[in-house]
Computed example of a mutant assay.
Amino acid sequence: MQRESVYSKVPEVVLSFWVIKILATTLGETAGDAVSMSLGLGYLLSTGIFAVVFAIAVAAQIRATSFHPALYWVTIIATTIVGTTLADFADRSLGIGYAGGAGILLALLLASLITWYRVVGSVSVQTVVSTRSEVFYWITIMFSQTLGTALGDWTADSMGLGYLGGMAIFGGLLLVVALAYYMTRVSRTLLFWTAFVLTRPLGAVVGDLLDKPTDHGGLALSRYTASLVLIGLIALGIMLFEQRPARGEVFKQPTDG
């Protein structure tokens, strides 16, 4: 078997990736709340709407023949919004609670990663070079985004740490992951997925800090205004920071002659 280097349809994981990812997760919280609460559509209907948007975006991403930064980040934003409304529906409307919802979603995330590994042999972003790998990638991201929302709400509300406390907790954990990346030989794939999950609750508590009422510890900013500002910052980040596709590898059978 011969290895052939190819370009993936997901971006290279560099610092700008994480900056835009945190902005996208914060947008997911403010936009999800804007639709489900401010517009009064409720969690279930809002989840259905954004689930359709997510499905369309993933289908477009899979059909694309090369990496398109705008399409990729639109798909990520769709996962963060549907993750917000779905987690809120499970935690609040179904009465599962934040701890119960986080436990279920953690199990689903681990099941997705384990299945992906057993089928493909790796859960690294370098393997996202085929339709099968892309499907696993986006399913895993969907579960991670929803889990992150539940973790953020659990920390800020149920544990009573508030939004600033939640920001300190998840920001500190991300710092530990960054130090592990630069100072240890811990699996880069493990660190990637750990950081990917942790950026979601960080964005969730930042979003709640921005738009929740002052008597709940928030700044009471307009959800629509906050969402529009975040969209502008994400667009600016995509334009200012070069968006390069990640390099992957495929195995090809050598041909005779």
Rank of each mutant, 00 (worst) to 15 (best):
R3G: 11
Y7D: 15
S8G: 04
F17W: 09
G28C: 02
D33W: 09
S36L: 02
L41N: 01
L41Q: 02
L41D: 02
L44C: 05
I49G: 08
I49A: 02
V53S: 03
F54P: 00
I56G: 05
R63F: 14
S66L: 08
P69Y: 06
L71P: 01
T79E: 01
T80M: 04
I81H: 04
T84M: 01
T84W: 00
A87Q: 00
R92F: 10
S93A: 14
G95Y: 08
I96M: 14
A102V: 05
L106G: 11
L108H: 07
S112N: 11
L113W: 15
L113V: 04
T115H: 13
W116M: 10
S124A: 15
T127K: 12
V128P: 00
R132I: 12
E134H: 14
F136Y: 14
T140I: 07
L147M: 08
T155V: 14
A156C: 07
G160I: 08
G162C: 02
G171F: 04
G172S: 09
L173I: 11
L173A: 14
V177D: 05
M183E: 15
M183L: 15
V186A: 13
L191M: 10
W193P: 08
F196V: 05
F196G: 07
L202Y: 01
L202C: 05
L209R: 04
D211K: 14
G218W: 03
Y224K: 09
T225E: 12
G237R: 01
P245G: 10
K252E: 14
